[in-house]
């Protein structure tokens, strides 16, 4: 075979990496646009969270205590 295989490989590399990057850059741009649109026009209702936090204030304190204990245990151990 007379074709230069290395050259072929390099051509593949440029085309392949180029496509991957173009795809991802376009994807990132679309993601940013999508996120800004969604967060501006369709924000998630925050009401539910407030209700649950006020209801389970005591419960949360217990959870925080447990997490702190676990972290101190982890740091010491």
């Amino acid at each position: 075979m007379e074709t230069n295989l290395i050259l072929e490989g390099i051509k593949f590399m440029f085309l392949g990496m180029g496509t991957v990057f173009v795809f991802l850059v376009v994807m990132i741009a679309c993601m940013n646009i999508m996120s800004s649109i969604i967060n501006r026009y369709f924000p998630e209702p925050q009401l539910n969270e407030d209700v649950t936090t006020s209801n389970s204030q005591a419960n949360n304190k217990k959870i925080i205590a447990a997490i702190t204990a676990a972290i101190t245990y982890h740091r010491e151990g």
Binding site: L5, G9, I10, F12, M13, G16
Partner: peptide, 13 residues
């Protein structure tokens, strides 16, 4: 993904 295409060149070498 450079791993893919870099190796492709390597195999061709």
């Amino acid at each position: 993904q450079f791993g893919i295409f870099g190796t492709l060149v390597g195999a061709m070498v």
